[in-house]
Amino acid sequence: MEKRFFQIQPNVLEINWPEEISDEILQDQLRYKNYLEQHHGDCVLEIRIGFNSLSVLFDQDIKKEQWSIIWNELENLKTDIQHFEPKVFKIPVCYQGEYGVDMENLAKSKKLSVSELVELHSSKKYRLFFYGFLPGFMYLGGLDPKLHSPRKSTPDLMIPKGSVAIGGRQTGIYSMDSPGGWHVVGRTPLTLFDPQKPIPTIAKQGDFIQFYQIDQDEFKSISNQLLAGNYELEYA
């Protein structure tokens, strides 16, 4: 796969893959990130990832000769080594009532029944490509094309934390209260970003998210378990 690099700032370099969303690019990114952290951790301060890009912040300005050595190492990384066994996280979602405020309108515009929409949304596994937009907000790939829907022309001023929504070709979970233009179809009682924890998120880049339907009573009961600290997140 053809890759290019670009120097954004004297101490920031970005690697670009062809303009597409694919697991192949994701695998490349994971290998690169892993390698840079393990072998150049002393000079790499931070790595940021997009669908087809990965940018590296160095602790000082990086010279052409230094970078060409690193670039050469990255290009020659073996592709057959799998560093990572992805997990599948099961996220409970209540699609009913006030939790899915835009559900009926969206189902109507898609000429689907609510239960068909729920079925389409919760039957797929979604790949976590990276975090962005908000702390703990997952960029998920794999939404059924039947559910693709343009964002609202006027964004809502406040979408509550935990809202599960559809926007464009993506689905996602609002990890905190935020304005937003996506169609809210449900809500999870889970907290997906906790700044008090050493690792503030649940899933890692490359993992999968799968939604399963719960009703309002189950929503309340999970919320109570979370408060009491005895809820166990399901994953495989």
Partner: peptide, 30 residues
Amino acid sequence: ILTSPVYPGTVQLTPSGKLIVLMRDAQVTG
């Protein structure tokens, strides 16, 4: 573009032709 990394100081060109200079609290991708 496909969502990509941004930093404080990144200047974005929006579809309506406006320029936005991202500052310290900016999101990490755009």
